[in-house]
Deep mutational scan, measured.
Amino acid sequence: MALNTPQITPTKKITVRAIGEELPRGDYQRCPQCDMLFSLPEINSHQSAYCPRCQAKIRDGRDWSLTRLAAMAFTMLLLMPFAWGEPLLHIWLLGIRIDANVMQGIWQMTKQGDAITGSMVFFCVIGAPLILVTSIAYLWFGNRLGMNLRPVLLMLERLKEWVMLDIYLVGIGVASIKVQDYAHIQAGVGLFSFVALVILTTVTLSHLNVEELWERFYPQRPATRRDEKLRVCLGCHFTGYPDQRGRCPRCHIPLRLRRRHSLQKCWAALLASIVLLLPANLLPISIIYLNGGRQEDTILSGIMSLASSNIAVAGIVFIASILVPFTKVIVMFTLLLSIHFKCQQGLRTRILLLRMVTWIGRWSMLDLFVISLTMSLINRDQILAFTMGPAAFYFGAAVILTILAVEWLDSRLLWDAHESGNARFDD
């Protein structure tokens, strides 16, 4: 018995066209964080690309023209004298008006014999932002004059995390709450300039795509075929072959399989920071003279006294001054041990922890910024005066060393310790 099946006739004509040209192939790229070699397709503007294995951002879609970056830099340069030299806060102490600005706080630190601690604050609040705007201006002028731009481009990517104007702005709020127990506070004209400078700096850093600047100024022929001998440069993120001198053909720094002496430098910085954190938390970090009496505060006791007036601000200072430094030390110690013992479990967790400490590390400088600003506000000789204690130097040095330890660690070593050939990683 035959089955009668109805015929289905399409209502619209289906047209099949042959592909007349070869589909576009992607360029081969190595991930600078996990060293995976993959094919990167062509990316349009405002599109980002991520590593298929570790999800690290390979290409950032946010990109401004150099002219727009230069305009932002010149605007920031105009704001800087007002943000640093004009009063941020006014207080009335014992019937006398006192003005506080950024430069005055750094000068008070240096004047009291601790120039190293003052230079830490100076670099993060004044030096690094000033280098940022002058570097962008150098790129703008240098591109037109045919100057060598490689050193500036190499420095810009590392400079971003040292620009800490946003953290200093939080420190202004913390210092205001600490001082309000002794005097009446009012915002100064410099505060508005400083807030504007923070906003412009944040926007500029978020749109400063150094890798795209490398592509514009020093374009290189990408690798179009897969080759395990391809290496990625950690300076400019170019994937290719080393030249005859073993250097990256684009930025001219040595092109090595792994960062040289990464573990040794990381261990040295980490152990030194552990040693410095002990006096930083045991010795007094601030000293207040009130009517001839002397009151010393460690980091913890200062947080407890701050909690009596504002528990939320005390929580912020606790996280930045105690929780973050010790968390960074514990995480980095764990990561280094996992590399030495070739741990194969929990790779995803370790990668996330490394990215976390990379982002939060700079916030530990908050305590030094609060001390710097408070020193310029309260300084009335023996009637009422505020000065920093010996722990300030140890704390600042420990924070900087932990930042350097994270920067010096080559994250690809975590993958080397893991089993080879993993296309995915999980716990």
Rank of each mutant, 00 (worst) to 15 (best):
Q345E: 14
T15P: 07
H90Y: 05
R380E: 00
G173W: 01
Q344D: 15
Q186Y: 04
M375Y: 02
V406G: 05
L278E: 10
M36K: 07
A417M: 10
M304V: 09
Q33A: 08
L255D: 14
N209Q: 05
I319L: 15
I199L: 12
A175K: 01
Y138H: 04
V275W: 10
R350A: 11
L77G: 10
Q108W: 09
D427L: 15
N310G: 07
V275S: 12
R68I: 09
D35V: 02
I136G: 03
P10F: 06
R68E: 03
D427Y: 13
Q295S: 08
G235R: 02
A18I: 01
E296Q: 13
L366E: 10
L200F: 15
R221N: 14
A187F: 13
I274E: 12
R216C: 12
N291D: 02
L366Y: 00
Q29G: 06
R350C: 11
I8F: 08
S308A: 13
A398C: 10
Y50N: 09
T117P: 11
A398L: 04
I91V: 05
E296F: 15
G146M: 04
A100G: 03
L368R: 00
A187W: 13
G142W: 03
D63F: 15
Q47P: 04
E212S: 15
K57Y: 05
I339T: 12
F326D: 05
V399I: 06
V232E: 13
I287F: 03
Q104A: 08
M155F: 03
G95C: 04
N422Y: 11
W140V: 15
L154D: 02
E296P: 07
W64L: 14
I43A: 08
A115R: 03
S286F: 03
L130G: 15
R424M: 07
D99Y: 04
I91Q: 04
A312D: 08
L156T: 08
Q33I: 11
Y168L: 08
V102S: 05
L3K: 11
I96Q: 04
L366C: 10
P10C: 06
I43R: 10
P279K: 10
L353P: 07
G188P: 02
T374K: 00
R150E: 03
A280L: 10
R221L: 14
T202D: 15
S135R: 00
S39V: 11
W408I: 04
R221Q: 13
L368Q: 09
D63H: 14
R350G: 10
Y289K: 01
C233L: 00
M388W: 02
N209V: 09
L66Q: 04
R424G: 11
A268W: 02
D166A: 15
I311V: 12
K178E: 03
I403D: 01
L283I: 13
T349K: 14
F82N: 06
A196P: 05
G118H: 04
L165C: 12
Y168I: 04
S411W: 09
K57A: 04
M103C: 05
E157V: 14
L159E: 04
L373Q: 09
A71R: 01
N148I: 04
V331T: 12
V102K: 01
V357K: 06
V195N: 11
R150C: 05
R221S: 13
N422W: 06
S65D: 05
V324R: 00
A269R: 01
P222E: 14
L306V: 03
G95R: 08
E21A: 06
F333G: 11
K57L: 07
Y241M: 14
G302K: 00
V324W: 15
I285M: 08
A70V: 12
C266Y: 01
I400S: 05
S376M: 12
W363P: 02
D99N: 08
N44W: 05
E22G: 08
E407W: 12
I136D: 02
G118Q: 09
Y241G: 14
G346P: 14
